[in-house]
Design a protein around this nucleic acid. Structure first.
Lengths: 192, 192
DNA sequence: ACTTCAACGAGACGGACCGTATCGTCTCGC
DNA sequence: GCGAGACGATACGGTCCGTCTCGTTGAAGT
């Protein structure tokens, strides 16, 4: 085996790198952020980055997940109200510049990096989608979601439009949108 | 003004460049495709590319739109049937490697190139979304879409899930998906 | 037919980053 | 303390960028 003794890892360097990565992406955008730039900004040799991360995307992903808490789904028994709450919170989060730029960046690199794609999916997007599916299962038990509906598609009916508008910027991305989308999604899912 | 005399433009070079760009993206993927690579493949000086296009994205965009016909919406009077048809066709088109890789690539570059973003939106995505909205207006007149529904959001309810699954690859992207999605979308839009 | 002039193919150029390979130096675990 | 391995720093060969020349070619204007 080679150099992977976590015990000897410098936490000062690790923290400096993650901080520098976050700052660089926020400041320059993902495309113009380079490994060399992160290293210089962090006051670190670039080899130290290559020693612990395989790619720029991996560094940025860890920087993103380092300081994030999972979005938890409420379950008050009222699907419409809970959905409304979550969509408004999601719009807020995505409208924010920092997290938004980073996540957008990762979704870019996912398209050309298989390993990173899997990481982002399992560590960031997957849990969110799974939590949503769980909430929908609960709603179905309560008779608020029609039987026979494919819940994976139901999740996409909810978040697909969000991502669509967030990525393409076709229309305003605001609270009013969260409201409208909530109504339509509930119409799609609800038992008649 | 300087060098913009379209009359003197070599059509041989232009065609060779667009063909080479399409091939290169299909073969290497967008990220590994370079302007130099396209020039070499086309048997062309790279200055000839820089003379007529501002960026790699612009070349690829023109290569994509060169040989594409707009997806037209049928209007048989039956929204469900028409929607079903279009979604199946869309899934087919997106599942295809060639067009898919190119469009995916453009959506990547849109995130970091303002001008390109506008071009892709107005020349590729926009017309598709507008056509969909028109079909929904027709359906609303026929009483198949409830009054008061925001048609821009309605369009996103339809295509948002498609893009979501296509980009993130969370679940199989096939005809069965088109079927399921059709059902849910119609539920969301339909008058009770 | 002849002139003319911009587009053409080719490729040199400086610069930015890539990812790898070594330098001494520092520091942690034994 | 001693040794191993991570550290900051930096040199290296590559690739590609975008700009800038070269002659050469070929179509428009006379």
């Amino acid at each position: 085996m080679e150099s992977k003794d976590q015990r000897r890892r410098s936490d000062r360097a690790r923290t400096a790198i993650l901080t520098a990565a976050t700052e660089a992406v926020a400041e320059l955008g993902y495309a113009k952020t380079s490994i060399e730039g992160i290293a210089a900004r962090a006051g670190v040799g670039k080899q130290t980055i290559y020693r612990w991360w395989p790619s720029k995307g991996a560094v940025v992903l860890e920087a993103l997940t380092a300081d994030q808490q999972d979005v938890e789904w409420p379950d008050t028994g009222d699907l419409t109200a809970d959905l409304h709450l979550v969509l408004r919170a999601t719009v807020d989060e995505f409208a924010d510049g920092g997290t938004s730029a980073t996540l957008r960046a990762l979704m870019i690199d996912m398209q050309q990096d298989e390993a990173l794609s899997e990481q982002v999916l399992t560590r960031v997007l997957g849990p969110q989608l799974a939590a949503t599916k769980r909430r929908l299962e609960s709603a179905r038990r309560a008779g608020q979601v029609a039987d026979g509906i494919d819940l994976d598609v139901a999740v996409e009916i909810i978040f697909g439009p969000i991502y669509h508008r967030w990525i393409l910027r076709t229309h305003p991305f605001d609270q009013a949108y969260a409201d409208t989308l909530t109504t339509l999604a509930v119409r799609a899912l609800g038992a008649p």
